[in-house]
Every structure is written in structure tokens, then in C-alpha cells.
Amino acid sequence: MKLYHCKDARSLRPLWCLEEMGIDYELINMEFPPRFNYEGYLDINPLGTVPAFTDGEVTMTESSGICHYLVEKYGPTDLSVKPDEPGYGDYLNWTYRSDATLTFPQTLVLRYSRLEPEETRLPQVVDDYSRWYLSRLRSVETAIEDKHFLVADRFTIADITVAYALFLGTSLGLDERYKPNCKRYLAEMMERPAFKSSREKQND
């Protein structure tokens, strides 16, 4: 299997998952944006987005979905929560909320504060979507009150996917406005050996 990755992009989610699971894989480190900087990338992922993941005949491009695929395809693993376990619905909800609700507004902040040319940057969009993202973190702040993990009393891919969203916020300076539980939770997640090794491998 291959994971096409850019430094600290959403592909860090499946990279972290692969490291937690100890699965053999090939990592393709690319310069962002790969649609311009990695020859043939649009043949692999016509959207030009990051990540792209291939496993035999399977090609996937959604970071949270790749994590879900890995734990189901290559489990059993405690990183997943099974349908007959308490918290299964919350597990799925957090895994997919992480991108649709928590990462999406940050992509607009990133685009209109850093990626667009100076003349087309939109400070109002940056401010609006920063506040939108931070307001959505209230649900995380509540969920991890007196807890180390989001669901099932153990570390799962829900933690990988949500913690990545919090980590992305550090690159945008949004973590300065995180509440105490989110700050503590992110610090704990970033201390995991697999998180550290995934970040080291993206620099190889």
C-alpha cells in the first residue's frame, strides 16, 4: 500500500494510523500542492487533493475514511469500536465530524490568510471561519471533560482524526484560543510515539 503525503496535511491522519497499527506501507512525501509539484499526481487523484492512498485495486482520498478502512481491513485492533460496543455511534460521529465540521473551516482560514496571493486574501473570511471553528470545539471541550479519550475509554481513530484537527489549528495560531481541556487533550495526543514517528517520517 502507498500513502501520498504532504507535510502536516490531512494525510497525517492515515500516516499516524499506519504507525499506530504497525502496518508495512510506502510513504510518498510530496511538496504542496502536489497537483503542481508531483508529476502524475492527478492521474492518481484527479481532485489534486491530499491525501491519496492506494491498496491493491483500492484508491481513497478522504483522510478519515482511510483510517476507517485500515482498522476494518487490517484489524482486529483496539483503534476501532465495533457495532456491539457502547459508544459505536459516537465513534463514527467523531471520526467523520473531525473533517466535515472541524477541519473544513480551517482550510478556508489557511487559504485566505496564507495560500492566496496578497491581493486576493480575505481577512473577513479568516475571522469568520476562525470563530466558526472555535465555536465547534465546544463539543470537544465537553466530550473530554475528565477523560483522556473521546470514546470507549481507549485511544481510537476518533482520537486520531479529531486530534489532527486540533493540531492543524496550531499552525494557524488558533490554539492560543483553545480551552483547557482541548489544550490538555492535544498535548497528550502529541506525546504518543506513533504521532511523533509519523511526523519524523514526513521529514525523511
Rank of each mutant, 00 (worst) to 15 (best):
K196M: 04
E72G: 09
R177V: 09
F32E: 02
M21D: 05
P51Y: 00
A158P: 13
T95H: 09
Y38P: 02
G56C: 12
E26I: 00
S80D: 08
W94P: 07
M60V: 08
I160S: 01
A52I: 11
T49C: 14
H68R: 14
Y185L: 11
V109K: 06
C6P: 09
L166G: 01
N37S: 11
I160F: 00
S63F: 10
L168H: 10
R136N: 15
W16G: 13
L108C: 05
E118P: 12
N45K: 09
K2R: 13
M30R: 01
V109C: 02
S197Q: 13
R192F: 04
P33K: 02
Y69G: 02
V126I: 09
R184M: 03
G75H: 00
S139K: 15
S130C: 05
R35H: 15
R177Q: 12
L27Y: 00
I44L: 15
L15E: 07
T170S: 05
L115Y: 12
S63N: 14
C6G: 10
F32V: 06
Y129C: 03
E176G: 14
D84C: 08
F167S: 08
P117K: 06
V109M: 07
Y41K: 09
K147T: 06
T120C: 09
F32R: 02
E176L: 13
G173W: 02
I157V: 13
W94N: 08
L108T: 15
S11Y: 07
R136P: 08
V71D: 01
V126M: 03
A187M: 03
